Computed example of a mutant assay.
Amino acid sequence: MQLNHQVIDQKRIFQLAGDRHVWYAKMRQESPILYHPEHQAWTVFRYEDVKQILSDWHTFSSKVPHPPEQTDFTQSLNFTDPPKHHSLRTLVAKVFTQRRVELLAPRMLEMTHELLDRVEAQGRMDFIHDFSSPFPVIVIAEILGVPIEEREDFKRWSNGIIAEDLTAYQAMGDYFRQLLQQRQGKPGKDLISDLIAAHEGGDKLTAQELVDFCIVLLVAGHETTTNLLANAIVCFHEYPEAYKQLQNEPSLLPLAIEEVLRYRSPAQIIPRFTKVETQISNQIIPAGQLIRVCLGEANRDEQQFEEADKFVIDRDPNEHVAFGNGIHFCLGAPLARLEAKIGLSTVLERLPNLRIEPNAKLELVASADVHGFKALPVLF
């Protein structure tokens, strides 16, 4: 069932989502490895198969072929295998540390209050436009050292890249190349300056690798957190008793965030490419085949999760694969989790009566790879 480009009311959106997951559950039982001739790709639904693919880079490569005009960008961290991936990730991890992320917490809290101050008197807002979208853009811009007046360009480029607009790739790449030149002559206390200076065993990031990482951080960080925050509000709306439980027990918020990541995974599908002939479950797949790894459906696998199609706000343990698995486990996961914790805790505290507008029609984003909404009108 195609859900892209549909405008549907709230009741119907949950019904359609349920229908989709019923179909996927059937596929997990009957055709867990499904071939799509029109896409020339295999789709994988089961949790154990997904984890196997993501953990075995020797067989399933991240170097998925792309059009020639995207070649530069696809040499980045997300689209490389070892040993190149190891050297890139080691260099980036030296400066993009969890400690660096945690030091941003006070500033993140200020940002959330600043954003809510702008709309609180109105009694309503578009949660995505007014809060969940600008928040991560501001955070990442501050991490990278981007001037405040250029952040709207960042948001526009990020949206363009998600929509596979090649002009957005080019515009963002050109901007970062210019910013890198400025930092090489006059380093600051930002991530870009530290990335330029980083080295490991004589290795340094090339100019293109620096640009690629900045783009990946902005696009992935913006899109993931925007949808994570908004999807949380939708989950709370769909499960009011769970929301009431969270309001009574705010300490449940970290578990609630993990359940949102599982139940409405922001990243739905990631690609892999078979290096050699291999077998997944009982299916032989030739070398040179595109694999569409369904993170969102693996996270609904009833063989892995009890009551998999129910939002359980205090689910523990919760070994979802929303951030991937193996060597490509999302480097920005600590940032997304901290942004979600600070963002949602502020909303819960300041807007306890937050609710989706009763007559709102919610439009799903036009991408099979991510799960989120174009707008989320709320009252408070």
Rank of each mutant, 00 (worst) to 15 (best):
A230P: 11
M172Q: 08
Q170M: 03
W42G: 01
N227V: 04
A308V: 09
T225G: 00
R118H: 10
D117H: 13
S251A: 15
Q40K: 15
S87R: 15
R337S: 05
P67C: 03
Q6W: 12
I143K: 00
D212N: 15
Y24P: 02
L290C: 04
K51G: 08
N299L: 10
N4M: 14
L246N: 07
I143S: 02
L91Q: 02
Q181E: 12
R100K: 13
Q2K: 15
G188H: 08
Q303W: 02
L191A: 02
M125Y: 07
F236M: 15
A163H: 13
S55C: 08
N78K: 05
I161V: 09
D56Q: 01
I327S: 12
I233W: 07
F14S: 14
H86Y: 07
P106F: 05
G202Y: 05
P134H: 08
L362Q: 02
I140Q: 09
F135D: 01
I140N: 07
L348N: 00
R262M: 03
K189C: 06
Q170N: 05
F79Q: 06
R20M: 14
H36M: 10
H5T: 08
Q245A: 13
R177C: 04
W42R: 01
T224Y: 01
A17C: 07
H86K: 13
P250G: 07
A340D: 04
N318K: 08
V101A: 03
S367M: 02
R300M: 13
K374Q: 11
N4F: 10
T80Y: 05
L3A: 03
N78T: 14
A198E: 05
F79E: 06
R177S: 05
L205N: 03
R264K: 13
K186M: 12
A198L: 01
Q75S: 14
K189P: 00
L348K: 01
L3E: 03
F127A: 04
Y175D: 07
A230T: 12
P266C: 06
A242Y: 08
L217D: 01
Q208E: 15
V139C: 00
V64W: 10
P32F: 07
D314I: 04
S61Y: 10
L364F: 15
E48K: 14
N227H: 15
I284C: 11
